[in-house]
Amino acid sequence: MPDTKEAKKLDQDAAPTTDGSAEQASQDSPMRLVATLIIVTGVAGAALAGANALTKDRIAAAKAAKKLASIKKVLPRCSNNPVKDAIKVKSPKGSEVEVYRCRSRQPDGSAPVVAVAIQQSSTGNRHKPYSGLIQVMVGIDARTGKVRSFKNNKGSDDVAVVIVKLSETPGLGSKAQDYDFRKAFAGRDLVDKDRTSDGKLWATRKDNPQLGFVDAISGATITSRAVTEIVQKALAVWNANKKIILTKGLDAPPKRPTTTPTREKRP
């Protein structure tokens, strides 16, 4: 270790030039110690305050962009900013939910809500996730009340169920993010608590082979059940608040949506 020796030598060389032996005593005086600490922490605090001021807006923007990105994934092209056009409604269970509305400007100047994005989490689920919390953003077509399905910007089929947060076992529960699992929800709606309008049951095929429509992920039935229930909850929020969502705070006089369909495909 030649470096250590050299370092020691350097240290000794440096020592006499800066603080002599007489200075050593004054170095240890309590006042000096306190003063040093105050100065160091003061400078550090000031530096951090400055940095915080510089990055604050940027961090807020990044957070908002992240939220918008997951909302955008489940909504078609909107003529408004869904994050700014959000309203708070009550879920059937009584908790407050933010609903992001997507509008499409029509030739006649009106801008009806064409789709909404609702985020739900596994909190309060009957079927708990395997580990941690699952958050799902669900996009619902406002005219049909069904989970949207569309072509994504790569041109392949996609469904408006996006896993925002998930800490299930990688390789098992994490497969809930795959289209192969999520596609079960495409075009499903909710009537009567746990039925779809075509008579299917909101359950995995494993729990109800005849009526369940969700193919559980092999090896991750628990996760599949949890996600199914979350999507179902999002639809329940839509069902309970349909009127308020569609009418409240319209920026144009309420009008029945015209027949012009919105473009699902993004260019």
């Binding site: 240890d28 040093t36 160091v40």
Partner: peptide
């Protein structure tokens, strides 16, 4: 390094 008294050097480094 030459301004920091030996006794408080660790807290100072940690703050830095």
């Amino acid at each position: 390094r030459s301004l920091i008294p030996k006794k408080v050097r660790i807290p100072c480094y940690i703050v830095v």
